[in-house]
Write a protein that binds this DNA or RNA. Structure first.
Length: 612
RNA sequence: CGGGGCGUAGCGUAGCUUGGUAGCGCGUCUGGUUUGGGACCAGAAGGUCGGAGGUUCAAAUCCUCUCGCCCCGACCA
């Protein structure tokens, strides 16, 4: 490709709309252009990189026996109603056809693939089955960001596996895990595998492949010492003394002064309490009121902690969880901000007599984070406006049934690693891929069953696996750039090299660069010849911005048949004879590719699947 | 959906407080001089100031509404 013909409009100034490094560089280097919020056109360079990424993805998936399909973007509503996701998923792009029939633009393809397999696969002999596609997905994101990192239309590889048994799924799961490691390694990524949350897609096990980056939107807790890492929502919190019984606690802590009711007018929040009582946040017991599937639940935890609503949801086994609105509190509404575990049942009953929601409050459902067991000399709400109790001991002044204790709080930086005990650290990550164990949550409603050897119908066990292809494009730049521009890893670079014809008025330079260009093309290299009629500085700047891994300068040494070969990453260059340039370039490319070869050392040790 | 910010030439922006002929840089086009890290000189084209309504003799500027975009949060298969 001649640079003079290349459609890659570069921008010298930093576009105002972009914040993250990759987004800015993609705009500046002419890789993408925005059409609307979260919707982008890929220009030729972007397409070339997407193709290279996709090729690696295909090779590695085919290697583990997966087969490529291509499913529709347009899905009928009925299919999604069968799994309940027409109503449940709120990022759906919905539309109607001319006959007013409802459709949606596929945000993911569990329904479509499961329905396909349900129709076409009947026997245990046909399993396991691994199918994938690389397809454009649509999600009406509430907030697209970072250019193509989180967009509303994006390219994704999604793969689905179908199995007879959980054990069989597990085998495939780890095969995919390894294929993913190879894909990221070959594409030039250094990634971190973490335990993932399963979100609305359901399922109980998942791993996320994360690029640690400031621009990431996943909050992870990473162990600096071992391989452990997890989505922050997923990290379990363990307390050393959780096992201690209530009785023991009360004996041990009987030196706390008797409980006392104190007046605390208008002091409702923990920060306010800290200020007015001159205590630290962990001296308080805060009690939050939730509505879980319509029923009130009181949740106690230490004043400095936050509820992990996913843990709470799972513990309560409810579908819908939200903070209770004052109206739902009935008689206790006036005590909002002054709720506490002491005498909660008595007070709730008394106050709710005239209220229709009485039945909910008669036996208030009180649950608590494990840490509450250790609370002594604490302060909590008195279930009465403007009053708190102080000198409150768990076990002496109130107690909660053992089965109502659980790990309910958000883990924070500094909490011990569940594997090795080292203090965990917060990191941001860009999720490049995720693998899920889906179980039968899609095969059951869509009746995707196989006939077993004894002719019994059994729902298939499913796995699903995604890789954000367009997100990888952005993330590559996020991980590989400097102040001058992009630095593509050779394996995914849009071109292997750029040949800079420094002065296109110079006959000798022109002759040599044309010769090298032809020779490079003939030998199968992908190169750009910068034949533009601009000053050398402009060509150099553009070369650095666009991130070609290698550059051949045909300039002042041309008279003696010398050219300069420069490595974008290291900035090092050396002079060589023009007739050796292509040979040398190939050598450098091969060497660079070798550093991206996956080897067994790079795969992390397999971990057991932990059922949630 | 909450909070904050921004819409002025292709891009980056000044002007808005205090209403009065819309300015600069980059880019583009023409001519010339230059030619190894985003050159210089001369000239030119390019604007319904996001849109609608209002106040006013007069609105980019003040007021109301609306649309779009960005950032933080909520959300996130």
């Amino acid at each position: 490709m001649r640079f003079s013909q290349l459609f890659s409009p570069t921008i010298k100034e930093i576009p105002a709309e972009a914040e993250t490094p990759s987004h800015r560089l993609m705009l500046r280097a002419g890789i993408i252009r925005k059409l609307a919020s979260g919707i982008y056109t890929y220009l030729p360079l972007g397409v070339k990189v997407l193709e290279k990424i996709s090729a690696i993805v295909r090779e590695e998936l085919n290697r583990i026996g997966s087969q490529e399909v291509l499913m529709p973007v347009l899905h009928p509503k009925e299919l999604w109603q069968q799994t309940g996701r027409w109503e449940k998923v709120d990022v759906l792009f919905r539309l109607k056809d001319r006959a007013e029939r409802d459709f949606l633009l596929g945000p993911t393809h569990e329904e479509v693939i499961t329905s396909l397999v349900a129709h076409e696969v009947k026997s245990y002999r046909q399993l396991p089955l691994l199918l994938y596609q690389i397809q454009t997905k649509f999600r009406d994101e509430p907030r697209p960001r970072g250019g193509v990192i989180r967009s509303r239309e994006f390219i994704m590889m999604d793969m689905y596996s179908f199995h007879k048994t959980k054990e069989d799924l597990e085998k495939t799961y780890w095969k995919v895990y390894e294929a993913y490691q190879r894909i990221y390694k070959r594409s030039g990524f250094t990634i971190r595998v973490v335990e993932g949350e399963t979100g609305d897609i359901g399922g109980d096990v998942s791993h996320q492949f994360e690029l640690i980056s400031q621009s990431g939107e996943d909050t992870l807790l990473i162990c600096p010492n071992c391989s452990y890492g997890a989505d922050m929502w997923r990290v379990p919190c363990k307390n050393s003394k959780v096992k201690a019984s209530a009785a023991e606690n009360s004996l041990k802590w009987n030196n706390t002064p008797p409980m006392e009711k104190i007046e605390t007018p208008h002091v409702k929040t923990i920060p306010d309490l800290v200020k007015s009582l001159k205590k630290s946040p962990q001296d308080f017991i805060k009690t939050l009121v939730y509505e879980a599937d319509g029923k009130l639940v009181f949740v106690c935890l230490r004043g400095d902690r936050d509820v992990n609503e996913l843990k709470l949801k799972r513990f309560l086994r409810v579908k819908k969880l939200e903070m209770a609105k004052p109206a739902a509190l009935g008689g206790l509404a006036s005590a909002m901000g002054f709720v506490g575990p002491v005498n909660l049942g008595v007070v709730a009953k008394r106050k709710s007599v005239s209220d229709s929601r009485e039945e909910h409050l008669e036996t208030p459902h009180l649950v608590a984070d494990d840490e509450i067991r250790e609370m002594k000399d604490a302060v909590c709400g008195a279930n009465e406006p403007d009053y708190h109790f102080c000198h409150v001991d768990y076990g002496r002044d109130f107690s909660i049934k053992d089965e109502n204790f659980a790990d309910l709080r958000m883990a924070v930086s500094g909490d011990p690693c569940p594997q090795c005990g080292t203090a965990l650290k917060f990191e941001n990550g860009i999720e490049l891929g995720q693998i899920f164990n889906l179980g039968t949550i899609y095969s059951k409603p869509l009746n995707c069953v196989y006939l077993d050897e004894d002719s019994s119908e059994i729902p298939m066990i499913m796995g699903c696996y995604g890789i954000g292809v367009s997100r990888m494009l952005a993330s590559l730049i996020e991980q590989h750039h400097d102040s001058d521009g992009i630095i593509w890893p050779v394996s995914v670079a849009p071109y292997d090299a750029v040949i800079v014809l420094v002065n296109n008025q110079d006959e000798k330079q022109t002759e040599i660069s044309e010769k090298i260009y032809q020779e490079a093309l003939d030998s199968g290299l992908e190169v750009v010849l910068d034949d533009r009629d601009v000053r050398a500085g402009v060509k150099f700047k553009d070369a650095d911005l666009l991130g070609f891994p290698f550059r051949i300068n045909v300039g002042r040494g041309a008279g003696e048949g010398k050219v300069e070969l420069r490595d974008r990453k290291t900035g090092k260059s050396h002079e060589i004879n023009a007739d050796k340039a292509v040979e040398e370039l190939k050598k450098m490319k091969t060497e660079a590719l070798q550093t991206l070869e996956p080897n067994t050392r790079d795969s992390e040790p397999r971990r057991e699947i932990v059922s949630a």
